[in-house]
Design a protein around this nucleic acid. Structure first.
Length: 307
RNA sequence: GGUGUCGUAGCUCAGUUGGUAGAGCAACGGACUGAAAAUCCGUGUGUCACUGGUUCAAUUCCAGUCGACACCA
């Protein structure tokens, strides 16, 4: 797992797990115990216009513990993992001058990995190029993208998920902007970090998790999710709004489905999202798993490591 | 009470001129390097209501039972 060569005495504690499992509550308890702060790694809680549907920590919780990266962006901002890696590391540098233990909490596996392991340096995508390639995809289909990639980067073509337009688009984008093969530039190397990393996973038995998801969606509706989505209708084309809880309500507002169906769809899609998150986190054995109620066990587990 | 239709996967339903069955959705498993709450890939999980009968063989045909629905009383 983590066998650090040097011990800086600084610890980044990652709290990960599927949506609705109860990460926020646990993280706040831990951050209180260590008198520290929380960095969010939830790619949709970054946006200030999206609160109800992303189950952001509430006012009360935000007042208890300082949270970073919650609501600091507008849906109109372009954002990506690489930016998050840089900004989070920068922030951590500052936080570690005041704290020995800082918490990184969220469900976006890629974002967590970017902070813990690093991500290769590629140029940010040029919007015109992305639109151009996307146009080709829409006009000529995925086969055309496959042909282009086979020609530009046969090595990557061999290993990519050839049916996944996002993967192909991204690889082509990098080939075009750098003039080099995407596969040549993927190092797959861990970037060194000058803090220790402890990873804690939170999970529940599937039926319990699913019932929490159901209740939370009902709660969101009660809290006014439909109005929140309504106010974002003009921006539905933005990436930030391609999100569970929002796209289903858009379908309802288009009269494609009833509100009841939209709510059912949100629950289904949230369950699937939770499953995808678990698949990601279970990819490694780096996580020590607990149920969210085991706050005492988690606290003593951490206390044993961090002094 | 009578007549008719139906009872097959978690749900909605196909189907088998008799050789133990398949779609959609749900579910389950997986992948993942700047869109990641995104995007993509894979998998049928079943006493064919129950009990008998006919048959080498019944989910399929026959009888009865139970249940649902419709119509008639």
């Amino acid at each position: 797992m983590h066998t650090p060569l040097i011990n800086s005495g600084k610890y980044l504690v990652v709290i990960a797990g599927p949506t609705a499992v109860g990460k926020t509550g646990v993280a706040i308890e831990l951050a209180k115990a260590w008198n520290s702060e929380i960095i969010s790694a939830d790619s949709r809680q970054f946006y200030r216009e999206m609160s109800i549907g992303t189950a952001k920590p509430d006012e009360n919780q935000l007042n208890k513990i300082k949270h970073h990266f919650v609501g600091q962006l507008s849906v109109h901002h372009y954002y990506n993992v690489s930016k998050f890696e840089n900004e989070a590391l920068n922030l951590l540098k500052g936080l570690f001058t005041k704290h020995d233990v800082v918490f990184l909490v969220g469900g976006s596996g890629l974002y967590i990995d970017a902070v813990c392991k690093g991500i290769d340096d590629f140029p940010d995508p040029a919007p015109e190029l992305r639109n151009y390639l996307k146009g080709i995809y829409l006009d000529e289909g995925i086969t055309r993208l496959q042909e282009m990639l086979l020609q530009k980067d046969p090595e990557y073509f061999e290993t990519v998920d050839i049916n996944n337009p996002n993967r192909l688009l991204r690889a082509l984008e990098v080939c075009h902007t750098t003039g080099k093969k995407f596969s040549e530039q993927r190092s797959n190397k861990l970037k060194p970090r000058d803090f220790q990393i402890i990873k804690i996973g939170l999970n529940l038995l599937r039926p319990e998790l699913f019932s929490r998801i159901g209740m939370r969606v009902d709660q969101m509706i009660e809290n006014g999710l439909v109005d929140e989505v309504k106010s974002l209708l003009p921006f539905r084309h933005l990436n930030a709004l391609n999100t569970v809880g929002y796209k289903e309500i858009f379908d309802f507002m288009d009269s494609k489905i009833t509100l009841h169906q939209a709510i059912m769809n949100i629950k289904t899609n949230t369950r699937r999202y939770a499953k995808r998150q678990l698949t990601w986190f279970n990819r490694t054995d780096e996580y020590t798993w607990y149920e969210p109620s085991q706050i005492n066990e988690i606290t003593s587990y951490l206390a044993n490591i961090c002094r």
